[in-house]
Structure formats: C-alpha cells, structure tokens
Amino acid sequence: MRSHLNRVIAFTGLDILASFLLPFRGKVLKPKRRLRKPIEPKVVIVKSPQRNVELMVREALDCLGDLGGIVCSDSTVLIKPNVGFSYVEANTNPKVVEAVVKVVKEHSPRRIVIAESSVRGSDTTYNFMVTGLYDIARKYSVEIVDLKKTKDVVTVETFGSKLKTVRVYKLAYEADVIISVSKLKRHVEAGVTISLKNMMGTLPDSEKGRFHLLGLHQCIVDLNTVLKPDLAVIDALDVMTVTGPSHGEMVKANMVIVSKDPVAADTIAALELFKLEGIDSPLNELYKIEHIIKAGELGLGEANPEKIEVLVKTI
C-alpha cells in the first residue's frame, strides 16, 4: 500500500513540492551544552545495609565535593529519573529521587523539573503515579512533567558520528543542569542501562525507534554529546541482574553510586553489576558494553577503570 502511495506521490510531483517545503519545517539548533572539559574521574560508592537513603545520597555528594559548582541560583535543573515502566521494581527507587530533590532544593535554583518519557507505548503519567513521584513533587513543590504530553520537540546537531541531528524535547534541551537519577539494570540490547542510556528518556517515541534502527550503542553516545548528565546518581539499592530491562533477578546491593563523570559512573556501576552476577572476569564483560567504551573514546568521560578514583564508604 505504502509503495503504491509513494508511486502516486512521485507521479504527481508532490515529492518535489515537499522537498521545497521540508527545509522550512523546523530549523536545526546548535547544541546548547558544549562538550565540557573532562572532569576528574571520581566515583563515590556509599553502602548502607540499613538503607537510610537520604543519608547515603548526602554522604556521597559530600564526598564528591560541593554541588554548588554545578547548581547555581539562576539555573534550571532537570532531574531525569528512570520511570520507564509501570512495574515499580524496574524504576528508580522514589526515595533516591526524593533525596536528590531535597539536596538540590537546598541550593535554591530557579527551577527544578522532574521529567521523563517512558518506553514506547507506555503511559508516563501512570508510571509517575505508580512510582509515587507525584507525591514527592507535591511535597517539595517542584515541577513534574510528562514529556510525552508536552509535544515540544527541537532538532539539535550532535557531535557524533552516526547521528547528525537528533530530536529531543525542548525542556531537556533548555535545561542548564541535567541530573540523571538512573537505576542499575541489565538491558537486553545495550548490555546495561545506567546514566548514559537513561538519557534516551528525553526523546520522543519516534526517535527512540530510529535509534534501534541505526544501532543503539553509537546512537546513545551521539545523544550524550548533546545531553550529557552533569551529575550521575545511580540507584543500586535493588539491582536487576541477568536479564532486563523489565524483568530480571533482583539482588539487594544497598548501594548508591554518584559521580560528576557519567561515563566513569557507568563503568564502575557496570563492574559492580557484573560482580553481583558472579561473572569471572567483569573487565572482559565491560569491554562488550560498546556505548560505555565508545563514550570513553570520544572523550565524554573516563571509561578506563584503572584511571578512575573510586571511594567506597559504608554507613
């Protein structure tokens, strides 16, 4: 049917008309957030068997240094949790999001927004409701946005090799600071889904499909050249191992991993995940996760575990 339609369009000359009109459909924006100079690759892991989440997040951020370097009084802060599914175990623990909101609020930025666009075909509003993020947003009076309902999309140039342009939600593009609050999970196609993969939640559904068509690993890296998290907070309280991202074996790890370098955070978190799974050589497994390795090669952060400074604390 579609091929017939294409033939009709070609025959009537509509495609020539369309080629004239298409350039005016939307303009391509330059990336607002330039590739910053490499930050010192320091990762903080805080373990707490008692699961005092707020204390864990505070301790981790204190060890990293001041948040004030990232969050200013005139900045718009985008907190991007992983709320992809309607099953709570596959989403970021709301307590971690709550702790992050609380800490960010103390720095009194101009605007704090919690935003997410769930996996294709899933209703983000319902997922927010099930996970309990609406209550948190109301409690601390911060904005919470279902990106799928905003429909405000901009086209942005990337510094990547495969994607030349990418369509992202305007809210994510305009944010000054992006804080990724991801969950440590296995992913069937990307290997693991942590901070870098978490940024796919700022894309409209059609773009997510295009990523799968073009090759997921390279596209994740290219997207992160435009929208790189300034702070990566990884919820590893309950880790989804073996399979993912929707169903897997849940392991209690009681950890929160924090870094200003998302690639370093992902590297260390992935190694922790492989250790939990009981894999003999976690390093070899890490080299199979192409998007982390490629992000390291492109200079988005440090992907070599030997060069990353890891600080482990137990409360």
């Binding site: 309607s86 099953y87 996996v119 294709r120 075909g121 899933s122 992913h187 069937v188 196609e189 499909g209 799968h212 068509l213 090759g215 997921l216 991202p245 929707s246 169903h247």
Partner: peptide
C-alpha cells in the same frame, strides 16, 4: 539490534 518487543512485554 532491536528487541524492543521484549523490553516492553509485561509477561515474563
């Protein structure tokens, strides 16, 4: 390179 169907399926 895809398996989106597996990702979104609610029935394990």
């Amino acid at each position: 390179g895809c398996l989106v169907c597996y990702e979104v399926c609610p029935i394990s």
